Simulated assay, not measured.
Amino acid sequence: MSDEADVGHDESEEGAVDEEAGDGERAAETALADAVAEYDDALAAEVAALEREAAESAERVEELESSLRRTKADFQNYKKRAKKRQEQEKARATEDLVARLTDVRDNLVRALDQDADADIRPGVESTLETFDRVLGEENVEIISPEPGQSVDPERHEVMMRVDSEHPEGTVADVYKEGYEMADKVIEAAQVTVSDDEK
């Protein structure tokens, strides 16, 4: 006999046991009502009504528990679908960004394909403009403080202090630009800071 047949056989046996238990409970309830009826018919009717109410309540509890199990299963399935959809959207967003970045790379390859003595600066500047546009479309801002601007420790990394014509403690020069996205600093700008005001 197969495992499935065994499972079905066990379930039918369990059902039979449950049914027998239910029959036994009903018989006990009837016996109780009959026993009370020997002494007081009104009380027996009340007992029978309470027993019916208890049976209905038990049935309602079973229905609610079954409904709760289905709801929990539905919620788990919803969470799985939502996670999968989020992963798909993230993958599509990444694909879009990569597609735009490949254009920038193609431009750089074309610039390097020029003759060794060719002036490639205009091509590189054009490529940089394209790249900056892509960053802008992704809400990336370049952190490039002007000389004389106050130092912001959240957005500027001080590399060294130097003599400069700008007020003491302000940005003297930008050593390396930084990047910020959605109000979060991805990379702080590296700056030199004025040591003395001249």
Results as ranks from 00 to 15, higher is better:
Thr130Cys: 14
Gln76Arg: 04
Thr102Ser: 13
Arg52Gly: 07
Tyr78Glu: 14
Thr30Ser: 07
Arg155Gln: 01
Ala45Gly: 12
Ser66Lys: 09
Glu197Pro: 00
Asp132Val: 06
Ser66Leu: 06
Ala188Trp: 01
Arg81Cys: 11
Glu29Tyr: 11
Ala37Met: 09
Lys79Pro: 08
Glu137Trp: 11
Ala16Ser: 07
Glu165Thr: 12
Asp74Phe: 11
Thr102Pro: 07
Ser194Ile: 00
Glu87Leu: 07
Gly148Pro: 00
Ala5Phe: 08
Lys176Glu: 11
Gln190Asn: 02
Lys80Val: 06
Val7Trp: 06
Glu29Ala: 09
Pro145Cys: 08
Thr127Val: 13
Gly136Lys: 03
Glu51Lys: 11
Gln190Glu: 11
Asn139Ser: 15
Lys80Cys: 12
Arg155Asp: 00
Asp74Gly: 10
Ser194Cys: 00
Arg92Gln: 15
Ala48Gly: 13
Ser150Gln: 01
Gly15Phe: 09
Ser57Gly: 01
Ser57Cys: 02
Glu38Gly: 10
Lys198Phe: 04
Leu101Lys: 02
Asp40His: 14
Arg69Gln: 08
Leu101Tyr: 00
Val98Thr: 04
Asp115Pro: 05
Glu141Arg: 10
Arg69Met: 08
Leu64Val: 00
Tyr175Asn: 06
Glu95Ser: 15
Gln88Thr: 13
Asn77Lys: 12
Ala33Trp: 06
Ala93Glu: 03
Ala93Thr: 13
Ala42Lys: 02
Glu25Ile: 05
Arg26Cys: 14
Ala49Gln: 03
Met159Thr: 15
Lys83Gly: 15
Glu46Gln: 04
Ser194Met: 00
Glu187His: 07
Glu14Pro: 05
Glu154His: 01
Arg70Trp: 11
Ser164Ile: 12
Ala116His: 03
Val124Asn: 04
Gln76Ser: 13
Asp40Gln: 06
Glu4Leu: 15
Ala111Asn: 00
Glu59Cys: 06
Arg100Ser: 04
Glu46Leu: 03
Ala99Leu: 10
Glu180Lys: 11
Asp18Val: 05
Arg60Cys: 06
Ser2Lys: 13
Arg133Cys: 15
Arg155Leu: 01
Lys184Phe: 11
Val185Leu: 09
Arg100His: 12
Asp10Cys: 15
Ser126Arg: 03
Asn77His: 10
Ala31Lys: 07
Glu62Leu: 02
Glu137Val: 09
Asp3Leu: 15
Ala116Thr: 10
Met160Gln: 10
Pro153Gln: 00
Leu101Ala: 10
Ala44Trp: 03
Ala111Pro: 02
Glu180Pro: 14
Asp18Gly: 02
Gln114Asn: 12
Glu59Ser: 04
Asp196Pro: 00
Ala188Leu: 02
Thr71Asn: 09
Ala116Gln: 05
Asn139Leu: 09
Glu53Thr: 04
Glu180Val: 11
Arg121Trp: 14
Glu46Met: 12
Ala48Tyr: 05
Thr71Gly: 11
